[in-house]
């Protein structure tokens, strides 16, 4: 069976780099991997998804609904939008910081991120709610959340790659000037992920 990871967020949040790193790590681990990205008009502030599929029996470039093992959501509303992709016992990591669409300020439809998170809590068994702003504060920019959340998933054992493989993938994939800070982001995320899973098991 294939292992499917769906990343979702809003155009500009850095989901593409995260999915590329996951795919590269899978390949470096000797696994068969395919992925697909949202590119084009939707990138301008629209919802974006990256589908990463690991395994020999994955033919469709997109993950069929109900078969994602892990969803990494960069925004609470986007987590809910993509929840139909999650497997029954799948895990979900969600950034609790909402991005308000510009239309929401013009014509409020009552988008309430708290309601989204509450719903996720009721619907998902393995749910990690993380605050990207707080976690990324020591790094100086929320832009590093994409790499940090990969660290979180690795630390929590939600992706089965060797930590070293991901670290060397980061080294090979990002601009030299940003290697150190991204590694730092990854390791900080990994530590958070470890804490999360310990608490989860303790419960």
């Amino acid at each position: 069976m294939s292992y499917n990871i769906l990343l979702c967020g809003v155009g500009g949040q850095g989901t593409v780099l995260a999915s590329k790193l996951l795919a590269a790590a899978a390949q470096a681990s000797g696994l068969s991997v395919h992925s697909a990205e949202t590119i084009g008009m939707a990138q301008r502030g629209g919802p974006v998804t990256s589908h990463v599929r690991i395994g020999d029996d994955a033919y469709s470039p997109l993950i069929p609904k109900g078969t994602a093992d892990l969803i990494i959501a960069f925004e609470p509303g986007e987590a809910v939008r993509n929840l139909p992709y999650l497997k029954q016992d799948g895990a979900l990591i969600v950034n609790s910081v909402a991005l308000m669409p510009v239309t929401e300020s013009l014509h409020p439809s009552g988008y309430d991120p708290g309601k989204m998170l509450n719903y996720l809590k009721s619907a998902v068994k393995t749910l990690a709610v993380v605050d990207a702003n707080a976690l990324c504060a020591p790094l100086g920019s929320v832009k590093f959340f994409n790499v940090m959340v990969l660290g979180f998933a690795t630390g929590a054992g939600m992706v089965k790659f060797d930590r070293e493989v991901l670290l060397s993938t980061i080294e090979a994939s990002v601009k030299p000037a940003f290697v150190e800070i991204n590694k730092k982001a990854f390791l900080a995320g990994a530590a958070e992920g470890e804490t999360f899973i310990k608490e989860q098991r303790g419960l």
């Binding site: 155009g11 301008r44 502030g45 509303g77 510009v102 989204m116 619907a123």
Partner: peptide, 18 residues
């Protein structure tokens, strides 16, 4: 086929000028 449960409606995000 799983019947989808009642989900809160995520916001519309039409593409906009940056």
């Amino acid at each position: 086929q799983e019947a989808p449960g009642a989900m809160p409606q995520p916001p519309a995000r039409p593409p906009v000028l940056c």
